[in-house]
Design a protein around this nucleic acid. Sequence first.
RNA 1: GGAGGGGUUCCCGAGUGGUCAAAGGGAGCAGACUGUAAAUCUGCCGGCGAAGCCUACGGAGGUUCAAAUCCUCCCCCCUCCA
Length: 427
Amino acid sequence: MNEKSAYDILYERGFVEQITDEEPIRRLLKDETVTCYIGFDPTAASLHIGSLVPIMSLMHMQRCGHRVIALVGGGTALIGDPSGKTEMRRIMTRDEIDGNAEAIKKQLSQYINFEEGKALLLNNADWLAQLNYVEFLRDIGRCFSVNRMLAAESYKMRLEKGLNFIEFNYMLLQSYDFYYLSKHYDCVLQMGGNDQWGNIVAGIDLTRRLEEKKIYGMTFPLLVTSQGHKMGKTEKGTVWLEAELTSPYDYFQYWINTEDADVGKFLALFSLLPMEEIEESGKLMDSELNMAKAVLAFEATRITHGEDAAVAAWGAAVNNFGLRPVRPDLFPSSTIPRTNATDASAIPTVEKARGELGEGISAFELFHDAGLCKSRGEARRLITQGGAYVNGRQVTVFDEKIGNDDAEDGVIRLRKGKKQHVLIRVV
RNA sequence: GGAGGGGUUCCCGAGUGGUCAAAGGGAGCAGACUGUAAAUCUGCCGGCGAAGCCUACGGAGGUUCAAAUCCUCCCCCCUCCA
């Protein structure tokens, strides 16, 4: 059904930054079923938006019939990848890493079908943790030239600030991973962020020296917004893929706030919509672009949190921001609702006991309790500066009492600034 | 191992006895302008309901009415020498 090869798809959607050999890779992905892998770092209990490009690339590979390996770096996390970092990372304990690795495995299953050998989920701790140091040095270490390693871009930055031996070894371990996967799982392609280029190429060299086997590498662009801001940070911090950490509502809001110049690029990378539809939307100008942003937000939320959560997040956006329906001729493949129906249940809601509100609570306390402000002081400042609203009315006195009388249908609507809404449900 | 230089609030970075909750920049928040965009301008930007108090300048002690600043020991990083 699909004439395009995985390479064509990745290329046209903007996934490809560097590749080791264009022609062979193009052919391979077109004519054969290949096994490819990407490593994920278990340094936190959840992946975040920064991992989404790799995840989406694996989805595309799988949809094209290739076998994908998601490698959780339980072993390499014990070392800490220095690539692209200015500071050494905190060394994590074995338990922390194992716990995170488990959580990440579960998360990846939302995007990739691991049934019946269509995809594999491996943990490199399974082979790295039992390596024998002297043997490793003799078999693997001898294949690495320190001179070449020092020349690698990934170490440059650290050579100025300092790099210690444990981190210097990271490249050997990741190279060994690739070698190991190529040997035991017939993996021929490693993909990763562009900061992984050095590590990937080193793995290719190692495998060639040990096995005389040719394998390949591809890297993705490291995304910053068109304004140069880093991806995945908002007023609430990192945008996680885990619903417990970043709600589908916030996740949707993150995407709908995409800068104009990034909408097309992000639709290609973070939705599965056909490129023709995405290109068509490129004609949208000015505020019409908000329709494309809505579709981006909806599709991205759908992929990560499911259709129902996406619809709910959309409904909340309609309710809070007067988001208008997307024209029917745009993005026909998207399942975004085209109606005006408004289910606002996804708006963040905090419950308060009727009794607690009996005497009325000072506005600044309420904003703090609702989680809109990190401290009471911040809430006071917010009110003083005129950024606090109750039921759409600006609060001007910081200790104005808010009580049961302010509830409309059992709900008090709080708003911080223009964008952040929380409902207080009186129970 | 020796000599020198460093570790400051979310990040970068100034501060070498009181006027320091700590210059400046970035990030962030709010206001104006807008399209839930960007840019720009303005205000805010440790905690506690104010005075004041508490917490904070790598760690532990000490000197002093008073310490981010002085002394001692320790930890970590960088540069040069070995």
